[in-house]
Amino acid sequence: MSDNTIPTRPLGGTRLELSEVGLGCWQLGGDFGPIDETTATAIVKQAVADGITFFDTADVYGDGQSERYLGETLSTLAPNAVIATKYGRGEGTYPDGYSLNDLRDSVKRAQDRLQRDTLDLLQLHCIPHEVLQQSHIFDWLREVQQEGHIKYFGASVETQEEAHTCMQHDDLASLQIIFNLMRQRPVTDLFDEAVAKQVGIIVRLPLASGMLTGKFSKQTQFDKRDHRNFNKDGDAFSVGETFSGIEFEKGLELVNKLTTFKPESLSMTEFAMRWILDHEAVTAIIPGASSPKQVTQNASTASLAPLPDALHDRLYAFYLKEIEPAIRCQV
């Protein structure tokens, strides 16, 4: 963006202000294909230059590599940037190794890698619903919070049901959810409650694993380490995380139809991300980026004008009729 600023929004009822467009940092762990430190650092530096002040990572992204890259770069370049990380998917933890000591140890390791005395936001990382329902883990989060290791806690979830379970806790700061043109159900099933309870919404996979860029074809090939290659059918983790739970070729067909709704002045990427930012409940979107140029393109979305209400209505009707029946997981 030309003025190097991006509008911010408050994260629910917290004191944190997030740039509307953040940077998702899964790719900095090398989980989409090899990435060297020079490229990773350039991506983070460009995000700061473009006015991005919110970065989302996790302890398991590259076994801590993503957190290390962020800590090394942001500690001097943007020490006041908000960093959110996650706990709950590490080896020995998922699916049934959760405990206060395990949580605390994970947080301390993240503090070291991120070079932060206190973590801004710790999110439960798509942990089993039964663990959320038992509630013990929320008591452990409160204890770690009282010890000064984290400022706020939230949860990254797969389904609306899991989101509602988490929102039973009044001190929940945020929910990270899949929300995009291919997963629109939160508009009617989640957002009103989130706003009422002052829970901030962080949107991951705003482009449905890149599907909504409109740049894929039946010939598109992904790196063998990329989840879009090995998890197309949910073989490694929830099928809903990859292409928003829609079979690849069906997704191509649906995106082709979605392009007919797009204003001529916008690219498909701009259209898809601006649609998300038009929702009051959303605090920030966290698209990933494989290059500094892509960071800048993503950041520019915040400066676009909102889409017309009538277009939103047409898109939701199209979702209910043609997209939702194709989703292969619980939404």
Rank of each mutant, 00 (worst) to 15 (best):
I323V: 15
K257V: 08
L77Y: 08
L141W: 05
L205N: 11
F318T: 07
E67F: 03
D139Q: 14
S267K: 10
D63I: 10
F153A: 01
K108P: 07
M182L: 15
F237S: 02
S209T: 07
D50V: 06
A272V: 08
Y98H: 07
G88P: 06
M268Y: 08
D50W: 04
G97N: 11
A272D: 03
G64W: 00
L315S: 07
E280D: 15
K293T: 14
G12N: 03
A81G: 04
N180G: 04
F54H: 04
V295S: 01
I327K: 11
L119T: 00
Q146T: 12
Q168R: 12
E162L: 06
F32K: 07
C166D: 06
G251F: 03
Y319D: 07
A84H: 05
H149V: 05
R89G: 03
I150Q: 02
Y316Q: 10
Y61W: 03
A236Q: 09
F243R: 02
L172A: 04
L320R: 15
L311D: 02
G92F: 11
A42I: 08
H312C: 05
H164G: 04
P186M: 04
E322T: 10
K215C: 15
V187M: 09
P186C: 07
T159I: 06
K232C: 14
M167C: 09
